[in-house]
Design a protein around this nucleic acid. Structure first.
Lengths: 94, 94
DNA sequence: TAGCTATTTAGAATATTTTCTAAATAGCTA
DNA sequence: TAGCTATTTAGAAAATATTCTAAATAGCTA
């Protein structure tokens, strides 16, 4: 946790593509990998980084590992950016 | 332009601190540098990265260079994240 | 114009990231 | 349990990022 890891994870186009894939629901590591022209090992490396950044979490089932988007961290990043942007001082905490 | 550069720029804690400093208004390179324990050359390097990412723009005045936050790119990033997060389908374009 | 002051650029050292191949792990299935 | 299938881990190579010192640029000011 920490924005450094989160933004670092988001900085890579492949990792952003993975997150976009997960928008429509969870996918196994293999299913994710099939969308890219890279070895499974490399996909695993990227998934590890997304996981460390808490942008995804995994669910183990049979001998598959499913990855799912963690929207709460996406929210946190949006809040940080919103605070940086400032100026919406009427957006009151309710 | 492109999210890779933007997120990469945001990934570094010093650069995020610089952006936070700029929340309350523009500052010269020197004023920014005075908040950090690094050489001016290093600050200049980080400012260059923020500038390439369009997160800041510069205004030259006398022999100072002032940096100012570019909130429109912050907005764009928030939109991308908002789309990733999904699920707020009642947030209609007006 | 000579010399300041502010900032950037160049070049080099070190650290970090990304990718691959090969091997390891772990859980099914026959 | 033997051998699959899915995925990760280890180790190494190549690319990129971060920092410094030293030098360059550029605009004031006296």
């Amino acid at each position: 946790m920490g924005f450094a890891e989160t933004f670092k994870a988001l900085a890579d186009p492949i990792r952003r593509d993975i997150l976009t894939l997960l928008r429509s629901g969870r996918l196994s590591a293999g299913e994710i990998g099939s969308h890219f022209d890279m070895t499974g090992a490399t996909i695993s490396y990227h998934l590890g980084i997304l996981k460390k950044a808490d942008l995804v979490f995994e669910q183990r089932e049979k001998n598959f590992i499913y990855y799912e988007l963690n929207t709460s961290v996406v929210e946190e990043v949006m809040l940080w950016l919103s605070d940086l942007r400032g100026g919406n001082e009427h957006a009151e905490k309710k």
